[in-house]
């Protein structure tokens, strides 16, 4: 529900934004945007601040807000979170977690990646909040100052659905990197990987697309299933059968993403970067791109 009302669903493939030399791919909107939209639409008074490179100020402010009794959400780099399994710890700077208190000099953490709560030392948390590199969070933290007594979900849901319909298809032609069309753009790129670069790189680039899609927190198929679940809830709430059909359609698209990941995983595992293999998975992507475009066109015009 939060992902849906925050209009989180998106796609972007950005060869100009490279992480360790690999083109950036994302299946959601920019970090921070979901919570911003969610709280705006639900009328939650939300305070967000960042601290540049002033680590001390960032940590003091956290303590101050915790003392006032608020849980605090924040952006961190997964690389510096010691409680995560080593396999997940890359330099990824847009990981959200929640600090809900301080006990015996350690912070109490609720991390969406874990199904239990844990603790982190002030030193480790400070490192994690102030990493450098792409999307440096600068200690960004946020917390609800006040929540309205009665929240009216339905208008927020309608607004969010329309917005996602608009956002995913209305990107201008000179920006092929964003929105549903970017899937087709990426498909064309993928088809050319075997001729444009050596095998190792081709497989690395392809693997990264799948990694972003299936990483923990995406719910599978790059948030597509989460979005379909949201539409299902919205259909019930608004008693709208059209949304229910669209939820099923999105589930189908998610299944196609999973098929793509399966085939791409096989190419990566076998380390075969044949022209034909890449062409055939590029075709899968092309079809997904067309389906998503059609989906969001319908979503934009759905009667609510």
């Amino acid at each position: 529900m939060a992902f849906g009302i925050g209009s989180g669903i998106f796609f972007a493939h950005m060869p100009f934004l490279k992480l360790n030399g690999i083109p950036g791919t994302t299946y959601r909107v920019m970090p921070g945007l979901i919570s911003k939209r969610l709280t705006n639409r639900l009328g939650i008074n939300f305070q967000a601040e960042s601290f540049g490179n002033n680590r001390q100020k960032g940590m003091d402010e956290l303590d101050r807000v915790l003392d006032r009794g608020f849980p605090v959400g924040m952006l961190t780099s997964v690389y510096y979170l010691p409680y995560l399994p080593k396999a997940f710890r890359f330099h990824f700077n847009a990981h959200n977690l929640l600090i809900y208190g301080k006990q015996n000099g350690e912070y109490l953490v609720s991390d969406p990646v874990l199904d239990f709560t844990t603790t982190i030392s002030p030193k480790d948390l400070e490192r994690a909040r102030f990493p450098k590199g792409v999307l440096a969070p600068n200690g960004r933290m946020y917390y609800p100052v006040s929540v309205p007594e009665k929240v009216d979900f339905n208008p927020a849901i309608k607004k969010a659905i329309r917005w996602s319909g608009f956002e995913n298809i209305m990107t201008p032609p000179f920006l092929p990197f964003f929105g549903s069309r970017a899937i087709n753009y990426m498909a064309n790129k993928v088809a050319k990987y075997p001729t444009a670069m050596d095998e190792r790189k081709a497989i690395l680039f392809l693997g990264n697309i799948v990694r972003m899609q299936e990483e923990i927190g995406t719910g599978g198929a790059g948030f597509r299933f989460i979005y379909a679940a949201f539409l299902q809830q919205a259909a019930k709430r608004l008693d709208n059968p059209e949304l229910s059909l669209l939820s099923k359609e999105m589930t189908g698209i998610g299944d196609q993403w999973r098929d793509f990941a399966f085939s791409a995983g096989r190419i990566c595992k076998g380390r075969q970067a044949g022209n034909e293999d890449f062409k055939s998975i590029a075709n899968l992507l092309m079809d997904i791109g067309d389906k998503e475009s059609a989906f969001f066109h319908k979503l934009r015009k759905v009667k609510m």
């Binding site: 396999a87 890359f90 199904d115 497989i203 690395l204 693997g207 990264n208 799948v210 990694r211 299936e214 990483e215 599978g220 299933f225 379909a228 679940a229 299902q232 809830q233 990941a261 399966f262 791409a264 995983g265 096989r266 990566c268 595992k269």
Partner: peptide
């Protein structure tokens, strides 16, 4: 109906993670 399911992993996902 959508439900939440915990997964210990998926070959495709594990392949690309180990590859990285």
């Amino acid at each position: 109906n959508y439900v939440e399911v915990q997964s210990i992993g998926w070959d495709a996902e594990i392949t690309v993670l180990s590859q990285a």
